[in-house]
């Protein structure tokens, strides 16, 4: 998200995909799905950064973090269910991705982390 917000799109796409592949190696879902999810999510986020998140103010970063986390969970759910439709993997409940403490913690933690990174890099 940091790379996307700072317009390093190619790097953002590559590192997102790589992160997805690495996390997918030890998760319960099919290998490759996490990579695809992170890639699609990053692509959509890049589009949003170029249309909505035009500056790097504190408010924008917080908003972008919240949108980013929500978008990631949604993309995850949608991608897994699309592949399940093609008989790869199983269908998963929408609530499983949102109605839990993990989602809430991620929102808070991501926002704080993003603010910290931008602060350290002196971008805000």
């Amino acid at each position: 998200m940091y790379l996307a917000l700072t317009k390093n799109n190619s790097k953002a796409l590559f590192f997102a995909w790589l992160g997805g592949i690495l996390t997918g190696a030890s998760s319960f879902s099919i290998f490759g799905i996490s990579g695809a999810v992170f890639l699609i999510f990053t692509a959509v986020f890049i589009v949003l950064c170029e249309t909505v998140f035009l500056n790097l103010k504190t408010g924008t970063i917080l908003f972008a973090s919240a949108i980013g986390v929500t978008l990631y969970h949604f993309t995850n759910w949608a991608t897994i269910n699309i592949f399940a439709f093609f008989k790869i993997g199983v269908f998963e409940n929408f609530g499983f991705y949102f109605a839990n403490l993990g989602f809430l913690s991620e929102l808070i933690f991501t926002a704080l982390l993003m603010l910290a990174i931008f602060k350290i890099k002196n971008k805000i």
């Binding site: 190619s10 099919i30 990579g35």
Partner: peptide, 24 residues
Amino acid sequence: MRNNSLAIFFILLLTSLVFIFFNQ
């Protein structure tokens, strides 16, 4: 730059699809 990003996106997506469809 934009075309570059697009190319990277499709290459990586294709790679992921290969992994998914040939996961066994």
